[in-house]
Amino acid sequence: MSKEYDVEQLLHFYQQMFRIRAFEEKTNELYQRAIMPGLAHLYIGEEAVAVGVCEALRKDDYITSTHRGHGHCLAKGASFDRMFAELLGKHPGYCHGKGGSMHIADPDSGNLGANAIVGGSAGIATGAALSMKMQGLDRVVVCFFGEGALNEGLVYESMNMAQLWKLPVIYCCENNLYNEYTPYQETTAGTFLGRPAAFGMNAVEVDGQDVLAVYEAAGQVIERARKGEGPSFLLCNTYRFYGHHVGDIDRSYYRSKEEELYWMTERDPLKLLANWMLDRKLTDSNVFTQIENEIRAEVEAAVQFAINAPYPPKEEVDQHVYA
């Protein structure tokens, strides 16, 4: 940790990460209680990536997200009530219930949209960066994607153009070790960093469980992009604690319980930050408890809001097909 942080900022990071954790735990519960339609891909375990990156972004910067997108959306400023409403297919949701878990989009927070097509947002993010450059705006775009997306052609077509034209875009690869149920080693030749290297693109690898490390690395590449020095590839090594989606309960055929336990106990980004602060006596554990209680209460209220919210009226179905 090279930077100096004040306690408020550190607690804010904790708060942001816990918001995601609490939201996702509630989502899992909503699924298990059969209140939420469909499935959701939980972000628990990876919170430091979204928070570290988004804290380094300005409000008017853009992100694109993935099927595992709740964390990105919340970190960029989405609110609980409208998120839950969207997850439950309710009218006040971010997309009036039309998008659901995998498609949350919100111009107010600079969210170009979550995408259920693996690698599908690489073009969008790169195009937004081109647009910023053409309009002379100093906004930066972060393209979040999982390591599985590194096998889709579009990602490379986009990275090539971004580097060629020095576009202000960050390709943030969240390597959580698995493409669905398959370890990345079985699907990926060569190294992750060898890929940006082929284009001569700036690349940084970071511990995705350490929010401060992510924040600092992100800050560097974002500033670089903002200054017009071109795109970067930000590799964050992380882990999802739960299944590929909420229904993925039996995981023994592709990863071990021990592995999961190790990450949950030794590599939990929230615990890591809390312990780091406690070690330095920057705060005491009651503060964390207080933050957690406040957030859980907020989640509870938001869920009640979403449950009580109306479904979209029938007329909504053919609205917004064309602009």
């Binding site: 339609p37 297919g89 039309k98 909504e316 179905v317």
Partner: peptide, 11 residues
Amino acid sequence: MDVPIPFSPAL
């Protein structure tokens, strides 16, 4: 229907 398939069960 000639619309993208919406998420909400109601739709």
